[in-house]
Design a protein around this nucleic acid. Structure first.
Lengths: 157, 157
DNA sequence: CGCTTTCCTAGTAATTCGATAGGGAAACTA
DNA sequence: TAGTTTCCCTATCGAATTACTAGGAAAGCG
């Protein structure tokens, strides 16, 4: 019973960091997978697969050949962190592998369904509002910043 | 890239549902593992292991023999859903297997750390406030209820 | 063509997940 | 004391997932 709970996978973390490097590079310049991997310390063959997901998800466009690379398909202000996670890693929140609306509970557990829905809504409220531009510029929205500034939010249990 | 994201495991879901059955039974009565398993449709040998975790975590007390079973170790009003999940499944939120405060990011990803902290704080705000008593009585706190009542919270993506 | 870089398929070692099996050990009943 | 009930412990299992790696085919450039 050590490390489980609600976890953000390496895949999702890498995907967001790669997208942030692209956001920081601006809309014109394109970065090569190897450069992103080096900048963020991500295994580069693993990253290639993740960038493929981002491209198939329409978040990124790619170019092959000598001066090829990747760049964002849309302005960084219009891409939420939630978009990146969903494209690279599937649904934001799931319970036992299915998304909350598909669940059914009985007896005293009946109110679990609205509870999971509320949790998901609260996660969305952050990851759906914060964009790549916010994070890359280190300018998080005030409501998010005030959550993160509370010292109690940094303690272990 | 299908079903990942932030997931609540079967273990955590089962643990909460079992605890809810105990909460609904009241502080005196004790329920047998088999009865809980039948009531909630949980494989009973699997549930036995989970109940062992809850006992070792101090949330539940057990009694062997003819009129044995399990009951809550504390009043249901004093046990948060987060307590149950942590005891059965480890930390509420983790990124790449480690808890947010242990992370370190560089370059344009530096603001990811406060972002994960904010997400965790927002999850805690719900799962740390809502108790077994709330859910078992189907009386969620108003702030949670208002999140769950928003129709937009029930849509897929 | 020759070079670069993306794209695709496959594979893999380690771990986790969900679940099952089979006995003990303790407590109650009679 | 014998017998039943119930929790308790360890061990195992297959399938899936996680985090990577390898090797090459396809596309764009000079």
């Amino acid at each position: 019973m050590d490390n489980r709970g609600m976890r953000i996978s390496a895949r999702a973390d890498y995907a967001v960091r790669a997208a942030l490097e692209l956001a920081a590079a601006g809309g014109e310049a394109s970065l090569k997978a190897e450069a992103i991997a080096a900048a963020q310390g991500i295994p580069h063959k693993f990253l290639e697969g993740i960038l493929g997901d981002l491209r198939r998800g329409g978040l990124v466009v790619s170019q092959r050949g000598g001066k090829g690379g990747y760049r964002l398909a849309r302005p960084a202000e219009s891409i939420a962190i939630a978009d990146v996670i969903r494209v690279a890693d599937g649904p934001l929140v799931s319970v036992r592998g299915v998304r909350p609306p598909e669940l059914s509970y009985c007896g005293p557990a009946e109110s679990l369904l609205p509870l999971w829905i509320a949790v998901r809504a609260n996660v969305r409220k952050i990851l759906g509002e914060v964009t790549l531009a916010h994070v890359a510029a280190a300018k998080l929205p005030d409501e998010v910043l005030s959550l993160a500034e509370d010292p109690a939010a940094w303690t272990n249990p």
